[in-house]
Amino acid sequence: ETFPLDVLVNTAAEDLPRGVDPSRKENFLSDEDFKAVFGMTRSAFANLPLWKQQNLKKEKGLF
């Protein structure tokens, strides 16, 4: 299941849709939104070091 970017960005855990893991908001973006937000594919993002993934998520309001 995916959700629009505005539902996930800068949203407190208690305000997220049911079933969304607040530590993994990026997994609930569509592939198109994911690429638009991070400028890379999911596989490229997954290959980044964890610290870099976290920094990007913070920068984009998805942490």
Score class of each variant (00 low, 15 high):
60 K>N: 11
19 G>M: 15
11 T>F: 08
14 E>T: 09
61 G>V: 01
36 A>M: 14
46 A>H: 12
46 A>Q: 12
40 M>Y: 05
47 N>A: 14
44 A>F: 08
62 L>T: 02
18 R>I: 14
37 V>E: 02
63 F>W: 13
47 N>D: 14
18 R>Q: 13
30 S>I: 02
4 P>W: 03
27 N>P: 03
51 W>S: 09
9 V>Y: 05
5 L>R: 06
32 E>G: 11
16 L>Y: 14
21 D>C: 09
13 A>F: 12
44 A>V: 11
30 S>Y: 02
57 K>M: 08
3 F>Q: 06
25 K>E: 04
21 D>N: 08
57 K>I: 09
32 E>T: 12
2 T>K: 11
55 N>I: 13
13 A>K: 10
12 A>P: 14
60 K>M: 06
27 N>L: 13
18 R>H: 14
52 K>A: 12
4 P>T: 08
49 P>W: 00
54 Q>D: 15
59 E>L: 12
14 E>P: 10
7 V>R: 13
61 G>M: 03
29 L>F: 03
35 K>V: 15
31 D>L: 04
15 D>N: 12
11 T>R: 11
47 N>L: 13
13 A>V: 14
19 G>T: 09
23 S>T: 14
26 E>H: 03
7 V>H: 07
29 L>G: 01
61 G>Y: 03
31 D>V: 05
41 T>E: 13
60 K>S: 06
21 D>E: 06
60 K>Y: 08
12 A>E: 10
25 K>N: 03
44 A>M: 12
33 D>F: 02
53 Q>I: 02
48 L>R: 00
47 N>I: 11
7 V>Q: 11
41 T>F: 02
40 M>R: 01
30 S>N: 10
39 G>A: 08
23 S>H: 15
37 V>H: 05
14 E>G: 11
51 W>L: 09
35 K>L: 15
4 P>Y: 04
42 R>I: 04
23 S>G: 13
8 L>Y: 02
7 V>I: 12
33 D>G: 03
17 P>E: 05
16 L>P: 05
4 P>A: 08
32 E>W: 08
49 P>Y: 01
8 L>F: 02
38 F>D: 00
61 G>K: 03
14 E>L: 07
34 F>N: 00
43 S>I: 13
19 G>I: 11
45 F>P: 00
60 K>Q: 06
47 N>W: 06
49 P>D: 07
58 K>W: 11
56 L>N: 01
13 A>I: 14
2 T>E: 06
49 P>I: 02
33 D>V: 08
6 D>K: 09
20 V>T: 05
44 A>H: 10
7 V>L: 15
48 L>P: 00
20 V>C: 08
46 A>L: 12
48 L>M: 10
42 R>Q: 06
30 S>F: 01
49 P>C: 04
43 S>R: 11
22 P>Q: 07
26 E>D: 04
33 D>R: 01
50 L>V: 12
5 L>H: 06
42 R>A: 04
45 F>S: 00
13 A>E: 14
53 Q>E: 00
63 F>T: 14
54 Q>I: 15
63 F>R: 08
47 N>T: 12
4 P>D: 07
12 A>L: 12
34 F>K: 00
39 G>V: 02
50 L>R: 09
58 K>F: 10
40 M>A: 00
42 R>V: 03
18 R>E: 13
45 F>Y: 04
9 V>A: 10
6 D>F: 07
55 N>T: 13
16 L>G: 05
62 L>H: 05
25 K>A: 08
42 R>G: 01
43 S>D: 14
34 F>A: 00
25 K>T: 11
10 N>M: 08
5 L>W: 08
49 P>A: 03
45 F>K: 00
10 N>D: 09
32 E>Y: 10
29 L>Y: 02
9 V>M: 10
44 A>I: 10
37 V>P: 00
14 E>Q: 14
45 F>G: 00
55 N>Q: 14
32 E>R: 08
16 L>C: 08
26 E>F: 04
1 E>R: 10
12 A>C: 14
19 G>R: 07
19 G>W: 11
14 E>H: 11
38 F>R: 00
50 L>N: 09
54 Q>S: 09
50 L>S: 10
38 F>W: 01
19 G>F: 09
39 G>K: 07
33 D>Y: 03
42 R>Y: 05
46 A>Y: 14
1 E>P: 15
63 F>E: 15
24 R>W: 08
47 N>K: 15
63 F>M: 15
62 L>K: 02
6 D>M: 08
26 E>W: 01
37 V>M: 07
27 N>C: 14
57 K>R: 09
50 L>Y: 13
35 K>F: 15
42 R>D: 01
24 R>H: 15
16 L>S: 06
15 D>T: 08
63 F>A: 15
28 F>R: 04
11 T>Y: 06
3 F>Y: 15
18 R>C: 15
41 T>Q: 06
7 V>T: 10
25 K>W: 04
5 L>K: 06
63 F>Q: 15
10 N>P: 05
15 D>Y: 07
21 D>W: 04
18 R>T: 13
63 F>K: 08
55 N>E: 15
42 R>W: 02
21 D>K: 03
53 Q>L: 01
39 G>H: 10
4 P>E: 07
49 P>N: 01
52 K>W: 10
27 N>F: 09
61 G>A: 02
27 N>M: 15
6 D>R: 08
32 E>Q: 11
36 A>H: 12
47 N>E: 15
48 L>D: 00
60 K>V: 13
6 D>I: 09
32 E>I: 11
4 P>K: 02
59 E>K: 09
14 E>N: 11
57 K>W: 07
34 F>W: 02
61 G>F: 03
16 L>E: 04
25 K>S: 05
9 V>G: 05
15 D>E: 10
49 P>H: 02
5 L>Y: 15
4 P>S: 06
53 Q>H: 00
2 T>W: 12
36 A>W: 10
16 L>T: 06
12 A>Y: 06
40 M>P: 00
25 K>R: 15
58 K>P: 00
62 L>S: 03
20 V>H: 05
35 K>C: 13
37 V>R: 01
17 P>N: 05
8 L>A: 05
45 F>Q: 00
55 N>A: 14
38 F>N: 00
53 Q>M: 02
12 A>K: 14
30 S>W: 01
28 F>S: 12
50 L>M: 12
48 L>W: 01
35 K>M: 15
1 E>Q: 15
45 F>E: 00
3 F>N: 05
22 P>K: 05
46 A>F: 11
36 A>Y: 12
48 L>I: 03
63 F>P: 07
34 F>H: 00
53 Q>D: 00
21 D>P: 03
12 A>W: 06
56 L>A: 04
42 R>H: 04
6 D>A: 13
5 L>A: 06
10 N>S: 08
14 E>C: 11
8 L>Q: 04
56 L>W: 01
48 L>C: 02
38 F>G: 00
52 K>I: 14
29 L>R: 01
40 M>F: 03
1 E>S: 14
38 F>C: 01
1 E>I: 15
52 K>T: 12
53 Q>A: 02
61 G>I: 02
29 L>M: 07
31 D>C: 07
32 E>M: 09
37 V>G: 00
2 T>G: 08
25 K>P: 08
58 K>L: 08
21 D>I: 07
57 K>C: 09
3 F>S: 03
2 T>D: 03
9 V>W: 03
40 M>E: 00
49 P>Q: 02
28 F>D: 04
24 R>M: 11
1 E>C: 15
54 Q>V: 14
2 T>Y: 15
29 L>A: 01
44 A>Q: 14
8 L>G: 05
12 A>F: 07
10 N>W: 03
19 G>P: 05
1 E>F: 13
58 K>N: 07
22 P>T: 06
9 V>E: 04
26 E>V: 05
26 E>N: 03
26 E>R: 02
2 T>A: 08
62 L>Q: 05
18 R>K: 15
44 A>R: 08
23 S>R: 12
41 T>A: 09
33 D>M: 06
61 G>T: 01
49 P>K: 01
24 R>V: 09
44 A>C: 10
29 L>H: 01
13 A>N: 15
18 R>M: 13
19 G>E: 09
50 L>H: 13
50 L>C: 14
5 L>I: 10
61 G>D: 05
59 E>P: 01
23 S>Y: 12
18 R>D: 13
60 K>E: 02
25 K>C: 08
47 N>R: 12
54 Q>E: 13
32 E>L: 10
46 A>M: 12
2 T>F: 15
28 F>P: 02
4 P>Q: 05
24 R>C: 13
62 L>N: 03
21 D>Q: 06
19 G>K: 08
24 R>S: 09
51 W>F: 09
13 A>D: 15
13 A>M: 12
52 K>E: 14
20 V>W: 03
30 S>Q: 02
17 P>K: 05
5 L>P: 07
60 K>D: 01
38 F>H: 00
47 N>Y: 07
13 A>Y: 12
55 N>K: 14
8 L>C: 06
53 Q>S: 01
20 V>Q: 05
7 V>E: 08
35 K>E: 15
34 F>S: 00
33 D>P: 00
28 F>Q: 03
48 L>H: 01
